[in-house]
Design a protein around this nucleic acid. Structure first.
Lengths: 253, 253
DNA sequence: CGAGTGATTGAAAGAACTCAAGACCGGTGG
DNA sequence: CCACCGGTCTTGAGTTCTTTCAATCACTCG
């Protein structure tokens, strides 16, 4: 084991995160920032946390202390109904920011759980707000990221409110594909980190329905499925389904 | 007609809005601000617009120029699917802020339409961002309002993803009730400004289902309905339904 | 190798939708 | 002032999509 590898091992436990040297920088909060602002942002990033699969980053009702940027892995945020029904509010991948829904009330309205071994950067919210006050580019990016969160929720609203089960899954797959492309990964080759139940709780469907849809899509040659590994074969047709063209004729508008 | 009334008539057409003298100030963007910040906010508020029922404030794809604060009336924001299916993303009432979902891409992902004669204050977004840079209290409030938008979307997600039609309508009624209370109005006496179709497009239900539910709730003594005028008789039971207790036993969690 | 979790598949049930017919309501014009 | 009109709302009947319940299969990990 050489010196670098040793350093890497140590870094995983508790090192101060450094946006400066982070490959996800341009996808994340410091997007567009240059020195010395970059170093300033580094100062409000407390440290990295490693999460095991199934571990909670925060839970419903916790006071807001920090936002979290995902360095690697994947998380879901979930909210519960009185009798235990769960809605997955979102899946979060590398370069994405988590916890903004807590700013309003200073308490997290969701729980956040790691879907696989993950690493997150903890960003003190009060420090961040202070720094955004001084760095226009940071304020701008924070507002944009929050706005993106809103539009993502709105896309999910469209799925849950108007789309058939088939359309929901197609949309979901296309969304995962796009986000992988954003990270520079193969867009037609998905390794899902969530269970069928999670997917169902996200799409507002029973897990059995999700499973059946995977099978149906496979039978129709749209995708191939091996457990959580999904290959997209016909992105064009998936996109058409996801866009919600039920028939070409009889449009309402 | 005395001098004041004349002034009032003129003011309705095009007067510069004035947060200072607005009764909704504490529910709106300038919440918590004092002079001289209040006057500074007034400067980025361009002017008031009057909207007739059915008029569009902006439409899908329009470039983001301004956010809008509602002074009176009510609006809905809607997004369309390929074949014309519509999802109502939100209903907006007095004191609420509209258009934040456009910040991410600089284009509105929804259309906004007045449900009744309404008045809105136009707030130049670039000016607002600049001012938020200088006034910490304003930045804070803007972030809080955007976070509130996220949590509201998340509540709707829970409704659309997990709740039965009955639970959705109960939630919706309770939400309207709370927002009326926030404005200091009678919380058990709703005058809906949207059609059954709008409500259905919001709740992800057919308009006939919404209508049937109103009837059923009325039969059960929960509410009384006369067209768009709804009286809530049993808020306690409505709240229970809205919280999602299907049965008291067999909880999943 | 058995236990346990997660995924698939089938059959039956149910919630909400679609289609369709009328009722209601407010506005307009004779 | 009343009849008529268009839009909105209500109600019914039958259908469809998704769920629920249940059984089986696959995989992983002590």
């Amino acid at each position: 084991m050489n010196k670098n590898e040793t350093a890497a091992v140590i870094s995983l436990t508790n090192i101060k995160a450094a946006c400066k040297s982070c490959t996800l920088r341009e996808l994340c909060l410091p997007y567009g920032l240059r020195e010395p602002d970059l170093s300033a942002v580094d100062k409000v990033v407390k440290r990295r946390h490693k999460l095991k699969k199934g571990e909670l980053l925060y839970r419903f009702g916790d006071p807001l202390k920090s936002l979290y940027a995902i360095r690697s892995g994947a998380l879901k945020t979930t909210s519960l109904l009185g009798d235990g029904r769960a809605q997955v509010m979102g899946f979060y991948l590398s370069g994405e920011l988590l916890g903004m829904d807590a700013i309003n009330t200073d308490h997290h309205p969701c729980s956040a759980e790691a879907l696989e071994a993950s690493e997150v950067c903890e960003i003190s919210y009060s420090d961040l707000e202070g720094l955004a006050q001084e760095i226009p580019g940071l304020q701008h990016q924070l507002l944009r990221i929050m706005s993106r969160e809103i539009t993502q929720d709105e896309q999910l609203l469209m799925m849950l409110g108007q789309m058939s089960a088939e359309e929901r899954l197609a949309s979901c797959l296309m969304s995962f594909s796009k986000r992988r492309a954003r990270l520079g990964l193969a867009e037609s080759d998905l390794k899902l980190s969530m269970s069928r139940r999670d997917l169902g709780d996200y799409l507002g469907l029973a897990l059995e329905t999700v499973s059946r849809l995977f099978s149906r899509f496979q039978d129709e040659g749209l995708i191939s499925v091996q457990g959580r590994h999904v290959r997209l074969h016909d992105m064009e047709r998936l996109r058409t389904i996801a866009t919600g063209f039920r028939d070409e004729q009889n449009m309402r508008a």
